[in-house]
Amino acid sequence: MMETTSSNLEVEARAGGRRTPLLSQRRFWRSVGDHTVLWLGVLFMLAPVLLAFLTSTHDAVTIHRDGLQFLPGDHFGETYEAVLFGATGFTGKATGLVMTFNSMVLGIGFAVGKIVISMMAAYAIVYFRIPFATLAFWVIFTTLLLPLEVRILPSYEIVQKMGLLNSYTGLILPLIASATGTFFFRQFFKSVPDELLEAARIDGAGPFKFFVDILVPMSKTMIAAIFIIMFVFGWNQYLWPTLITTDEGYYTLVRGIKQIIQVWVGANIPEYGQAMALAILAMLPPILVVVVFQRWFIKGLTESDK
């Protein structure tokens, strides 16, 4: 890797982190432009989050009356303490820790389940000459077209009949029934060069070995991307868990947040500060996932295609 002699900066930076000292002026201005765009992007995306954090340090009445706050307030300790150590709910089972654990189980279970199942299905659809492959794809694909909210009553009935109410399986499985992952991996597998497969075949690799030893490692970047997306999706589930669990031991963070915000309007002032504080705290694990998995972004195909 180190002997890359290309004059290209990006490639070099990626390879070894060394930089050519001579930056032409044009390149400099282009890089300024790039950074400006990125900074604007970051501003657009993150300013509201920053405001949420600042706002979370104020008391509920201030937020209720004056909206978002641009300066830190003096309720930081109070609010965050209440959120971290106070238990919500009736039984006291739903502490911050329990809710974090449940959200974590949902996030990981959902992401892993979906990746495994959809990679397998996409592999079968793309790499095999089986009858009905197209049909199978459309059968899976159609699931994108009817959101869970619409089929929620019959879904509940099925989960109940299978005895999965108040269980992690019941929480996770029905959510996996959507085509995002399969569709995504299908797109990727289709763009993997055919030569690879031929080479593998010459080496005597069977379909299973090819999948496990070559295709899966090659998909690292893709897996990372979809893991982040799916983890957060699972992490943030609200409606389905609310519906199929009655045991407070299954409370998730988002449910905790909703319970704080949702107060019959006018009757009382919701603890906006606490809701935002909980949301800020609830962001940390997904961000950890992002930080961990974004490393895979730099590796992936760029290395393995050599």
């Binding site: 009553l153 509940y156 009935e157 109940q160 409606l239 609310t242 009655t246 909703k258 949702q262």
Partner: peptide
């Protein structure tokens, strides 16, 4: 045992789903 089931709408839907399946509170 009181159980918080979301908004009025969510609570109503939850109880409809549960009632149909014989799991009503």
């Amino acid at each position: 045992v009181p159980v918080y089931k979301g908004t009025y709408e969510e609570t109503l839907t939850a109880v409809i789903a549960a009632f149909r399946a014989g799991e009503q509170p």
